[in-house]
Amino acid sequence: MIAQALVSGLLIGFVFALIAAGLTLIFGVMEIVNFAHGEFLMLSMYLSYFLHAGLGWDPIAALPVNAIALFALGVIVYYALIRRVLRAPMLAQVFATFGLGVFLQNAAQFLWRPDFRTLGNTWVTGRIALAGVYVSGPQLAAAGGAVVTTAGLWWLLSRTEIGRALLATAEDRQAASLMGINPDRMFALAWGLGAACVGVAGALLSTFYYVFPQVGGVFALIAFVAVALGGFGSVVGAFAGGVLIGVVESLAGVFIAPAVKNVFVFAIYLVVVLLRPRGLFGKL
């Protein structure tokens, strides 16, 4: 039973980690928390749903479409909204993205009704038994996809020229622009990449999770906690935070009670930040 709970927790934890990585990337580069992150995820899940229902495309096959579409959405949101509040007080930035989230969530409800939708059969339906532990195919695929994407993001940031430019902008905007890096473009890229992360996560989740207008809230709150738990701005921290939350949630759900599992998620956040006020991997 412990093994089963651990494995389930790890699998969903990898998906939390990917969502959190997108959030922390945006924060790390420009110190803005995207409160519409969950709604980006929701839009990606609807995209998978409509591609599947309308064109018969499998969400796994259409994954690049989600990534590109959400990348574009992130860039558009940056230029249309975020650029205008760059110099505004932190609270105005919070409410710009919060307002966007309210807008997107209710626009989805207006357009597509509050129904819960499921995709039905996809490539990854079914389940596998491994040494007595049952693993559902969609969850395994989602976890695998999330790990690969998060690792890709990490590679991009730490091993490529463009990633270094992003990190340089995060470190010192002015010094970076003196080195010939255009911070404006880097900010847009951060929003694009951050949104593309939830684009991938949305496609992966759509194979086994209900698609409905409020679905983003479920994951966004956990992603915020994961990001803060790991330390704002740290991709490695967000990954660790996401996985830790997945495991804690799963163990608490099995051994204590499903109704109170989130108490443990929030409690572990409090314990960690009270011991380390900037999270597990945050800059001190």
Binding site: L81, R84, V85, A88, P89, A92, Q93, F95, A96, F98, G99, L100, G101, V102, F103, L104, Q105, N106, A107, Q109, F110, R113
Partner: peptide, 22 residues
Amino acid sequence: GRSLDLVVYGALIMVIAVFEPS
């Protein structure tokens, strides 16, 4: 019952945050 009111509400919050950040 289709939450158009909240669509407008969200848009207004964005507008205030952008044009009147204080």
